[in-house]
Design a protein around this nucleic acid. Sequence first.
DNA 1: TGATAATTGTGAGATTTGTCACGATTAATA
DNA 2: TATTAATCGTGACAAATCTCACAATTATCA
Lengths: 188, 188
Amino acid sequence: MEKLFRAHLEKIITLTDEEFEYIKSHFSVMNFKRRDFLVRKGEKVTYVFWVISGLLKLNYVDDADKNHVVAFAMEDWWEGDYYAFFNQSSATMSLQALEDTQVLCMTLDSYNTLCREFHKMAYFFLEKANKGHISSQQRILELISTNAKERYDKLLNRYPVLFQRVSHTLIASYLGVTRETLSRLTAQ
Amino acid sequence: MEKLFRAHLEKIITLTDEEFEYIKSHFSVMNFKRRDFLVRKGEKVTYVFWVISGLLKLNYVDDADKNHVVAFAMEDWWEGDYYAFFNQSSATMSLQALEDTQVLCMTLDSYNTLCREFHKMAYFFLEKANKGHISSQQRILELISTNAKERYDKLLNRYPVLFQRVSHTLIASYLGVTRETLSRLTAQ
DNA sequence: TGATAATTGTGAGATTTGTCACGATTAATA
DNA sequence: TATTAATCGTGACAAATCTCACAATTATCA
């Protein structure tokens, strides 16, 4: 696992053994069972997570009590309620394990310390944030410019493995349509 | 203008006069007339922009030749084709002035230099990227969980001034609906 | 100012998507 | 393994949105 995390960091920055040890000391490992909540709506958000193994869903419940999958997070992905994390406020969304999942977690204090005392990590997070911002913008583009079928095809093409691990109901929710609509689109 | 930009930076970081001069030297001022393109689809992206005065739209043309407003940018906002900028590739979108507009522009070299040699700026951009990521995620949430009328109301509520400066056609495009649909929604 | 372009509203009908309901199948777990 | 829960497909109908068309109004700028 440590090797995986180090490899993850070294895709963007280079590290000595000592530097990696220093970084590692700011993270802790946590284990969750399928269906466990890593973040619960309304409760204070203490961590963001890096997925070692398993699968997470970030879920939003709207005013009409409908669920919406905002994001999935697989191995090697970061996830969390970033808004609540950075504002140290209570969660607007929930983060739940869809499989037994092991994560590294980081507090805001650790984040700030790492950024302040070790500028390589600030650069690492900057790169991550930029990429996250860009991919969010591309998802917005997809949502306003393509229909559900095209979004389905694109997702299947990019993350085929997701379709073996996640129910169609959740895929539909992520795509912004009902499961019935998705079922009909894919029947053809 | 310089004061505005300094105030913009100092919302996040503190600066001495010398530091601000150093930062400023990495930006240049450019002026655009209404309808001018700051970024043209297909052409190499050299800059990202900070709007001093005026108004921009970020526009995407899909495979069916339909236009989609990805974002507006008013005074005090950053905008650009970030994907193409960071990858130094050709533009996937266009950025066009909706009013006569004055901007500060920054090259990727300047960005990298600023981040490397002046860590306060890396932190500034990190904060901006995080906030951009979060607000994109919130827009995704809106797109998958609310109908056009709710999105319209929310936008009107947050940026009332936008409705005095931008045509309904463009607002509709930003909201992901046709102008006819928006016209009918707001007639009631 | 006068010609031209852009914007807006609205009707009619097609298309897409949602809602609710039901039964069949598969997966989870006590 | 027996029971319960989750998932999936589909029919029937409702609601939302799109498409195309046309005319009226407003803005632009040569």
